[in-house]
């Protein structure tokens, strides 16, 4: 298991869902959030994410992670759109030389909710699903082993590199490299950091691939799975239903868009 994955183990029905079901629902959420232009739909998605996180007992973790990753950008959206949204006509407040526009705020509400729904769905998926399980389920359904390995490695490499970067930074600071303070100083600290980081990552990647090859990674025999991940008929129904509904929604949006162009 990867100790650095944000996965939080809780006894909940959401956790017990087949990873593929969660993956499909996540993708549907993202697609709908992008395809829609209605605030109500986006808020409904956001509500669904929050409700699902409560059912999974990870509402607090979700709130904390989303707040940490989205706070600055949401604040920026409100400031920029509220003040400078093109075509604004209805002033809401006037503070000195600045005018906050109603249209801008409405657009900011929509964009921020859409962003929060997407980030929330992503975080919820990560909190309730082990990446190993998701990839293993995909591989059982025909994803190539090499691609599965690449996906898993990519998910692990960023926290791995962060930990290594911290160790390298410590080693170079101990040799008198000033890494705190002015920008130019921090920039000068960059090179001694990058060298070991890149070389070390290549070396560890090579070692890792040799190690998994030594355990028969590319052996052509048929695989069995250590752990069977349960799947039920109704989950399969949910997946198909959600996929079809999302597909239908996108088609409907396209038709409306094209007909509006024609008219």
């Amino acid at each position: 298991m990867n100790p650095r994955s944000p996965y939080v183990h809780r006894p909940s029905s959401i956790h017990r869902l087949n990873p593929l079901t969660k993956g499909v629902l996540f993708l549907c959420t993202v697609v709908i959030a992008f395809a829609t232009s209605s605030l109500t739909t986006v808020l409904a998605l956001l509500g669904a994410v929050v409700a699902a996180s409560a059912a999974a007992r990870v509402a607090r973790e979700l709130a904390r992670t989303v707040a940490k990753s989205a706070f600055v950008i949401v604040a920026l959206i409100f400031i920029v759109q509220g003040l400078f949204y093109p075509g604004s006509r209805t002033p809401l407040y006037v503070v000195g030389p600045l005018t906050i526009w109603q249209e801008g705020l409405r657009f900011a509400c929509f964009t921020a909710s859409r962003l929060l729904a997407i980030i929330g769905a992503t975080v919820l998926l990560m909190l309730t699903t082990r990446p190993e399980d998701l990839v293993s389920e995909l591989m059982a359904r025909g994803l190539s082993r090499k691609l599965g390995f690449v996906v898993l490695m990519t998910m692990q490499i960023i926290p791995n590199m962060q930990a290594r970067a911290a160790a390298i930074l410590d080693a170079q600071r101990s040799r008198g490299l000033e890494t705190e303070g002015r920008l130019i100083q921090r920039f000068r600290a960059f090179l001694p950091l990058m060298g070991p980081l890149v070389v070390g990552s290549i070396i560890s990647l090579e070692t890792r691939s040799l190690a998994i090859e030594a355990r028969g990674f590319s052996s052509p025999t048929k695989r069995v799975r250590i752990e069977d991940i349960p799947d039920t008929r109704w989950e399969s129904l949910v997946r198909w239903g959600a996929s079809l509904a999302t597909f239908g929604f996108v088609v409907w949006r396209l038709v409306r868009w094209i007909s509006s162009l024609i008219r």
């Binding site: 080693a171 950091l193 060298g195 070991p196 070390g200």
Partner: peptide, 9 residues
Amino acid sequence: FQNPDDQLF
């Protein structure tokens, strides 16, 4: 440090 590869560049 323990691991020279964190240090040499």
